Computed example of a mutant assay.
Amino acid sequence: MSNFSKFACLALSAALLLNGCKGKDGDPGPAGATGATGATGATGAAGTNGTSGQNLTGSLYGFVAPVDEYGVALPKSGVTVTLEGVTPAATATTNADGRYEFTNLRNGTYNISYSRTGLGTVRRLGVGHVGGDQPTFLGTSSISAPSTTTLGTLTVSNPTTTSVTLNVPFSNPGAQGAFVRLAIYASSSPGTTAANGTLLTTVSTTTSPLSFSFSKATFNSAGFASGTAVYVVAYGAPSVLTSYVDPLTGRIIYNGLTAASTNQVAFIVP
C-alpha cells in the first residue's frame, strides 16, 4: 500500500472514532438539575429546594395547644390551620388531640396561621418543608385567648437617680386570683403604642395596682438615654404570650393584647 493510501486510511479511522464519541444530533446529554419552587407564602417568594431538581411532596404536621388567657388548657379540636397565600387555599383542622396535617404538600417555605373563635391568631413565618418520605414535624404551637384585662390611669412615683416606679391599676373579673400579665411599652415621643413602642417588660401579678420599679439600666439597655424624656403605656396580655416577627418592619408582634391604659405617663429617664 502506498504512503498516501496509508495516510488516508488513518485519517478516516480517526474521524470515525471522533464521531463515535458524540451524542445524537440535538441531544446534549442529561440537563443540569434545577431547584424546585415551593408554594408562595404571604411574604412573597416561595422557598426552593436548592439544586435537588425534584418537586418533592410530603406531609407536614404538628399540634396546637389552646389555652385561656390565664394559661388553663382548653379543648384542642377545631383550630383552623392555614397555609397563607397558597392557591388553591390550603387549610386543616385540629382533632381532639390537637393534631393537624397537610398531605401531598409540595416542598417550599410557608407562612402558617392558627385561629379559632374565642382565641387570638398566631402566625409562624418562614416554615421550611423539605417533602419526601420523611414528614415535616412542626412541634406544638400554643394559642391563647386574648386578654380581657381593663387598665386604669397610670401614675409614676418614687423617682430617684437610679429608678422610677410605675403604678398600673387594672381589673379582670374572670381572674379570680389568677395571675394577670401586663405588658409595658415605651417610646421617646408621645403617642406610644404596642405598634411603635419598645417593650420594656411583661409582668405577672395578682394585685392591683401593680407597682413595678424600673431601673436606670432597664431604660438604657432599651435605648433610652439618661436625662431624656420617655413616654410609657401599658397593656393587658394573656398569660401565655405568643409572638412573631413582622417581616416588613422586623418588630416583634405580641398576640392577644387588650386595649391600652387610659393614659400614658411621661418622665425623665434616671
Rank of each mutant, 00 (worst) to 15 (best):
G23S: 13
T136I: 08
T207W: 02
T207K: 05
S239N: 13
M1W: 06
A260V: 12
T103N: 13
T82E: 06
A194R: 03
Y231A: 08
K22S: 13
P159A: 15
A178F: 06
A266S: 15
A73D: 07
R124E: 06
L125Q: 06
S52V: 12
G152N: 04
S261G: 11
Y100R: 04
T201H: 08
E84D: 14
K24C: 08
S239D: 06
I268V: 15
T34W: 04
L200Q: 02
S77N: 13
Y70S: 12
Y114P: 02
G78I: 09
P270H: 15
I143T: 04
R181C: 07
C9F: 10
G62C: 03
T201M: 12
S171L: 07
Q176M: 10
Y185Q: 03
P173D: 12
T48L: 09
P135H: 07
G118S: 08
A225H: 01
T218V: 12
G38V: 05
L200I: 06
V245G: 04
A15R: 03
L12V: 11
V168A: 09
F7I: 07
E69F: 13
G108P: 04
F170T: 02
T161Q: 10
A145V: 05
Y254E: 11
T109L: 10
R251K: 14
G38L: 06
G62R: 01
T242Y: 05
T117Q: 11
T80Q: 09
T136V: 04
Y244M: 01
G23Y: 08
S187V: 02
G139P: 05
T162V: 10
F214R: 02
F219I: 10
Q176R: 10
T149A: 15
T218D: 11
V64Y: 11
T262K: 12
T148W: 01
A14L: 15
S204V: 11
T201C: 12
C21V: 14
G120D: 14
S141G: 01
S113C: 09
V67A: 13
G53D: 04
S147G: 11
T117R: 03
P30L: 15
S52I: 12
Y110A: 08
S115E: 14
V86T: 11
K24T: 06
G191W: 08
N111P: 00
K6N: 10
G58M: 07
H129F: 09
D25V: 13
S188P: 00
G50I: 08
L199I: 05
R123T: 09
L154F: 04
V164D: 00
A33G: 07
N255W: 02
S163D: 04
P247I: 13
G177C: 07
P159L: 14
A266K: 13
C9A: 13
S59T: 14
Q176K: 13
S147C: 10
Q264Y: 11
V79D: 07
A225M: 08
G62T: 02
S157V: 14
L17K: 01
S208R: 06
H129K: 09
I112E: 01
I252R: 13
T109H: 01
V86E: 08
V168I: 15
V168L: 08
G58D: 09
F219M: 07
D68C: 11
K24M: 10
